[in-house]
């Protein structure tokens, strides 16, 4: 199929960016979206032009590196990551606009690549459990109820891709935080640090410059892992409890 690609090009984080238009032919519907971009880059390199910079790593939907705003939707029209999006979701002759995540907390490094270190700093400010290193503990020594374990696992599927922030009109990372709060808060191992965790993570989130949540739900619709809005309510509940108890 033949496509018209409108792609954001930006030489560096300090340089001004803009949309460049490319015509690309010979695209198979079995290609993934990133393979389609690989094809474009091969053509650009052959012509002696600078290839389009974009992020990818595992290309199997579990690492959270690929991050593209495709026609105004984070990760494109399907509920999956950009690497697992296939060109069969598009038609011959389509115009596709590709942009990086837009958030001051995710500065553009080059073209479509953004720096998501702010997520790492939020995790570092509470999104973990403190455990002694050494040999792994016996898995069944701390029992977790099955429903809690399943709920925690669903929240733990967050890959930290940043689609929630990209899709949110406020640029809030509440779904990302809520997923971690719910994941650890559901399990016995997460209890000792439960309330200092939520206070620490929210403080870092606000300090980074992420926006406030207004519960409109664009994040959960964009999430490739389908993490529900419930986790934001859980985040708010834990934060309320923490404030009442003076954390």
């Amino acid at each position: 199929m033949n496509l018209t690609l409108k792609i954001w090009r930006q030489a560096s984080s300090s340089a001004p960016g803009g949309i460049h238009t490319y015509q690309l032919g010979g695209v198979s519907e079995d290609m993934s979206f990133l393979e389609m971009l690989d094809l474009l880059n091969e053509e650009l390199v052959t012509k002696g032009e600078e290839p389009v910079a974009f992020d990818s790593d595992c290309r199997e939907g579990i690492c959270g590196m690929c991050s593209l705003m495709i026609n105004g939707q984070a990760h494109g029209p399907e509920v999956t990551t950009t690497c697992q999006l296939h060109m069969r979701s598009f038609k011959d002759g389509d115009t596709i606009t590709i942009e990086p995540w837009r958030a001051s907390t995710f500065p553009v490094i080059k073209d479509l690549i953004v720096d998501r270190s702010a997520f790492d700093r939020i995790i570092q400010s509470g999104g973990y459990i403190s455990a002694n290193t050494g040999s792994a503990p016996e898995a069944n020594s701390v029992p977790a109820p099955r429903d809690k374990a399943m709920h925690a696992f669903n929240a733990a599927t967050c890959i930290g891709c940043g689609a929630c922030v990209a899709a949110c009109p406020n640029g809030s990372a509440s779904l990302f935080m809520g997923a971690k709060i719910t994941h650890l808060g559901d399990l016995p191992q997460g209890q000792p640090e439960r309330y200092s965790r939520v206070v620490g993570m929210v403080a870092q989130h606000d300090h980074e410059g992420f926006g406030g949540c207004t519960n409109i739900g664009e994040c959960t619709a964009a999430c490739p892992k389908g993490i529900p809005l419930d986790v934001i309510s859980q985040l708010n509940k834990d934060l309320r409890t923490a404030m009442v108890h003076g954390f």
């Binding site: 409108k6 954001w8 960016g17 949309i19 705003m69 026609n71 105004g72 606009t97 942009e99 837009r102 958030a103 001051s104 907390t105 009109p169 406020n170 640029g171 410059g209 992420f210 926006g211």
Partner: peptide, 8 residues
């Protein structure tokens, strides 16, 4: 948080 708007 979003000084540069999305084109789409």
């Amino acid at each position: 948080q979003r000084p540069v708007k999305y084109q789409v």
